[in-house]
Computed example of a mutant assay.
Amino acid sequence: MKNVANATNYLDIDTKELFRLYSSDKSNKDIRDILIERHLYLVNLLAKKYINKGVEFDDIYQVASLALIYAIDRYDIEKGYEFSSFATPTIIGEIKKYFRDKVWTLRVPRRIQELSKKISEAKVILEQKNKKHPKVKDIANYIGCTEEDVLEAMEASYGYQPISLDSSNNDDSEDKDITLIDKIGKEESSFGNIEQMDFVNKFIENLNELEVKIFKDRFFLDKTQSAIAKELDISQMTVSRLERKIVEKLRKEYEKNL
């Protein structure tokens, strides 16, 4: 009854004072439980950021909750910063660590993940038993599934430990020194440049001679407003005003072409 009474009394104390009390007595579980309860909103908020990333929400919530407890135990209120500012990076860090250590790189159905685990275990058992590397048929018979299921899971397993793009071929062909990244096609940057220049050229057609001069000098030749003003024998304020006008025209023209 005494513990219940103490817990009830603690409920009436503000959070900062609870942290001070807990700092002086880390063995007080009643205070820690109240502090956890008051900050579970933070766990829920941060855990929801990782929904639909290939892991059950309950698993993420559990990791975040343990991180919250860890943060409460380490927090020092005398340093002056808010607990939420201290706990947030701790919780996010633990969640990211969980993803890094436990989660597949690519999103793979749970059925495939579980089957892949069974295949790995079957490989070890069959190899020890038969003293040779098991075939797909042997694995399928041992697990009790089809060969197609085994092949699908084995292919998907690359999502757990992806191959580096810097790795080379494992065969003895002439291409053995060529890495995977050498085989990946890429978009020619010049295609995008052509499209952008076409847009700019069409935009310039709608400017007068003075605006074209300022536009090219400012955005292509990197001239300062004062240099342009001196060259055109006008004030820098006039150059600045015309530049804002040109930029506004450019923005509207761009939005029209989206």
Rank of each mutant, 00 (worst) to 15 (best):
Met1Val: 07
Asn3Ser: 06
Ala5Gln: 09
Thr8Gly: 03
Asn9Tyr: 10
Tyr10Glu: 05
Asp12Gly: 09
Asp14Val: 07
Thr15Leu: 12
Leu18Thr: 02
Phe19Ser: 05
Arg20Gln: 15
Leu21Thr: 02
Tyr22Phe: 15
Ser24Arg: 15
Lys26Asp: 04
Ser27Met: 14
Asp30Trp: 12
Asp33Ser: 15
Glu37Cys: 02
His39Val: 00
Val43Asp: 03
Val43Gly: 01
Leu45Ile: 10
Ala47Tyr: 00
Ala47Thr: 02
Lys49Ala: 08
Tyr50Asn: 02
Ile51Met: 11
Asn52Gln: 08
Lys53Thr: 09
Lys53Met: 12
Phe57Tyr: 14
Ser65Phe: 13
Leu68Ile: 03
Ile69Pro: 00
Ile72Tyr: 07
Asp73Ile: 15
Tyr75Gly: 02
Tyr75Gln: 06
Glu78Ile: 04
Lys79Thr: 05
Lys79Leu: 13
Ser84Lys: 12
Phe86Ala: 04
Ala87Cys: 05
Pro89Asn: 04
Ile92His: 03
Gly93Leu: 04
Glu94Lys: 10
Glu94Pro: 01
Ile95His: 01
Tyr98Ala: 07
Phe99Trp: 07
Arg100Asn: 12
Arg100Tyr: 10
Asp101Val: 11
Asp101Met: 14
Lys102Arg: 14
Lys102Val: 00
Val103Glu: 00
Trp104Ser: 10
Trp104Leu: 04
Pro109Cys: 04
Arg111Ser: 08
Ile112Met: 08
Gln113Asn: 10
Glu114Asn: 11
Glu114Gln: 13
Leu115Glu: 05
Lys118Ala: 12
Glu121Phe: 09
Glu121Val: 11
Ala122Cys: 05
Val124Cys: 02
Ile125Gly: 01
Leu126His: 05
Glu127Asp: 13
Lys129Ile: 09
Lys129Gly: 04
Asn130Gln: 09
Asn130Ala: 14
Lys132Thr: 14
Pro134Gln: 05
Lys137Leu: 03
Lys137Cys: 01
Ile139Asp: 00
Asn141Asp: 07
Ile143Lys: 02
Glu147Val: 01
Leu151His: 02
Leu151Pro: 00
Ala153Gln: 02
Ala153Pro: 09
Ala153Ser: 06
Met154Thr: 09
Glu155Asp: 11
Ala156Gly: 07
Ser157Pro: 05
Ser157Ile: 06
Tyr160Arg: 12
Ile163Cys: 09
Ser164Ile: 03
Asp166Glu: 13
Asp171Trp: 06
Asp171Glu: 15
Asp172Met: 12
Ser173Ala: 11
Glu174Ala: 14
Glu174Trp: 12
Asp175Gly: 15
Ile178Trp: 08
Ile178Asn: 04
Thr179Gly: 07
Leu180Pro: 01
Leu180Val: 11
Lys183Cys: 14
Ile184Cys: 10
Glu187Asp: 07
Glu188Met: 08
Gln196Leu: 09
Met197Thr: 09
Phe199Tyr: 10
Lys202Cys: 11
Ile204Met: 14
Leu207Arg: 13
Leu210Pro: 00
Leu210Glu: 10
Leu210Met: 15
Glu211Ala: 12
Ile214His: 02
Lys216Ala: 07
Arg218Val: 04
Phe219Trp: 14
Phe220Asn: 06
Asp222Val: 06
Asp222Leu: 12
Asp222Tyr: 12
Lys223Thr: 04
Gln225His: 15
Ile228Glu: 06
Ala229Val: 05
Lys230Tyr: 08
Glu231Val: 02
Glu231Tyr: 08
Ile234Lys: 12
Ser235Ile: 08
Ser235Lys: 04
Thr238Phe: 06
Val239Tyr: 03
Arg241Ser: 10
Leu242Gln: 06
Leu242Asn: 03
Glu243Arg: 10
Arg244Cys: 05
Ile246Ala: 01
Val247Gly: 01
Leu250Ser: 04
Leu250Gly: 03
Lys252Cys: 04
